[in-house]
Design a protein around this nucleic acid. Sequence first.
DNA 1: GATGAATGAGGTTTCATTCAT
DNA 2: AATGAATGAAACCTCATTCAT
Lengths: 207, 207, 207, 207
Amino acid sequence: MPRTEKKRRKYSAEEKKSLILNSAIRVFSQKGFHRSRISDIADEAGVAYGLVYHYFENKQEILHTIFENNWGLLTKVIDTVEEQTDDLSQKLLLIVSFMLDAYKLAPDIIQVMVMEIARSSKFLKEPKIEAFEKAFSRLAEILSHHQKKGDIATDLEPKFLSYCFFGILELILTGYLLGTLQPKNGEQHEACKASLVSIFLHGIIKR
Amino acid sequence: MPRTEKKRRKYSAEEKKSLILNSAIRVFSQKGFHRSRISDIADEAGVAYGLVYHYFENKQEILHTIFENNWGLLTKVIDTVEEQTDDLSQKLLLIVSFMLDAYKLAPDIIQVMVMEIARSSKFLKEPKIEAFEKAFSRLAEILSHHQKKGDIATDLEPKFLSYCFFGILELILTGYLLGTLQPKNGEQHEACKASLVSIFLHGIIKR
Amino acid sequence: MPRTEKKRRKYSAEEKKSLILNSAIRVFSQKGFHRSRISDIADEAGVAYGLVYHYFENKQEILHTIFENNWGLLTKVIDTVEEQTDDLSQKLLLIVSFMLDAYKLAPDIIQVMVMEIARSSKFLKEPKIEAFEKAFSRLAEILSHHQKKGDIATDLEPKFLSYCFFGILELILTGYLLGTLQPKNGEQHEACKASLVSIFLHGIIKR
Amino acid sequence: MPRTEKKRRKYSAEEKKSLILNSAIRVFSQKGFHRSRISDIADEAGVAYGLVYHYFENKQEILHTIFENNWGLLTKVIDTVEEQTDDLSQKLLLIVSFMLDAYKLAPDIIQVMVMEIARSSKFLKEPKIEAFEKAFSRLAEILSHHQKKGDIATDLEPKFLSYCFFGILELILTGYLLGTLQPKNGEQHEACKASLVSIFLHGIIKR
DNA sequence: GATGAATGAGGTTTCATTCAT
DNA sequence: AATGAATGAAACCTCATTCAT
């Protein structure tokens, strides 16, 4: 019977959970959270739908886990940006890079984060909005620091700017996701990142 | 007493439809589209839920109607902006004004448009994405015109800029809606609009 | 105002009721009773659906009226057959003629009578089954009379034969209605009637 | 106590499906298809109504399954009749026997087949009419064979005769189902079958 | 761990019928 | 007589979740 055992033991518990989570991301991304059934996720993962409940409390918790796993990454990037450089434009480029590269690597995750979580956050328990808020605040702090340094015009509110910055990123990603904006590749992809930073820093006016 | 007749026919058909539509906007805005039941809408309007089906095919059509009614307004604003002025910054200000004022006047509508429609557009029928796309394209045309005039840096793609611009607006509104960003009033509200245009045109860097 | 009056008075009350009834027959025949909505009938008649309730108690009563109007005709034919001739085969031919001609003249009525009323009679109030029963009994009486006269084999139960006879007619009509059996025209239509009588009287065996 | 375990899994999946199907037959037969609710079926089967949807797409599919399961039996009987005997009257007796015995064994099934399916077939998807048609055609072929053999009068169309034959059977069964015709038992039941065959073959005229 | 049968709350939708105008 | 807005019971169906095996 060890042979059969092995077949079943192809994945460890943690791997199985991951498998289900990734299936969920794919399914949510394709059909949207509300239109996705637990059985869709289970089918995608190739497991019985009852098993999903071994690893997750309920459907909502799956979405929550996706959020936790990935939003943390952004937070971490923003947090470590300070350590990497002192240059404002470099800092912004790191954030832009992270997000656009993330789209390249895992558009499904971005889809879910942007579309499903942002959308429903208003109706969720407080903690999720707080998490969002934290990222915005951290960037605001960075901007505030540079404002004090004299890099940024003093009549602009850092928090407000933080929303502007992420707004640009979010809608560019949305355009990519909807297929109405063509994502670039290779060098152009990098140029695109620089462009975004430049637009935010210097605007679009020809100087 | 015919004038004060309270039971039925207080409203004309068109008014009743409007009543239901506005109730739907309020309910969708408070609970989100998926969490809203037809009976919630009917209760809010003070009618039997069967009546909702007298005026609308189904729940989705209510959302669709909200979209049609309001997205058209934005499209019209963008379309008429050209006739009002030749100045790029004035044009952008008109658009910004329309959207931020709309939030002031009817935050519920903005909530529904941004959260329920914009973010779930991927799952909607094609035509809706097209409608979105049209607004982006119209702005892109305007920007393209000014690029040719020499107002805008030539290395920037108008369509891309169009997404940046609306992205800023969208996330500012989202911040207002989530309550994480404080909307301003009166003069400051106007200053805020000018700020947004200025950020887009000249960036945030101190000159 | 007499002019307007006239327009409205195009139909008398009785004519309007007839109009609705005939529309109902057409609609029931096409969609079946349960799938037909009152509004379908009203549309077909070109009136408001509320008006249907001026002339009929409810939907069921419409069906009931169709039954009453038309089943009576068959009963009358069976009842008067005795007066017309003494010959068994002539009597049966009169009944067959009536039913097959009725199909030619008004297949919709036959459709409704056969499909909607016969089928649901089990679930209706007693009276309807009684009415059916009466037609079968009357024919049974006629057959019984001829049995006593020595025309019909004595080991056959007249009531039983009555069901056989109507069964033949009913399924031939059903075949016509379903389009799986080709109705004949003109002379062949008459020959068909004679055939049916002959089959019932002498069987199908070659003599 | 595992043997007497009463809560769940008393039946295998296939048995449970059968249980629901048989409950449906009973309910349809008593109340008619349209008047039967899914919950009636579930109650009759002693299960939650959601379970019905575990085994069947929808209500219509239940009816369809009943049809498939049982119409197939008749088709098979007609198909195998040729192998059993060369005598026309024996062949017809086998078919008559099958149908009248089926009524004895499972009047509910006959009720549903005759009342709900046969009579509403016009509104069902094409395939169902085709299935009916096939049985009629098979009998027509058999009759055609005997016509060529010289058993049956040459001026009669086999397809037409096939409708006559099934018409007789159908209305006799209808009489039984409506309770307006007394079904016989034992020997008389057998005599009744013979009678039907004889009527079809030799008619009712005293020779 | 794994399965999928079983449950039933919850929501949508239909449409016969009523009734003010 | 005529209209169609209004009502709400009724039924279907979905699917998250539980739980015996």
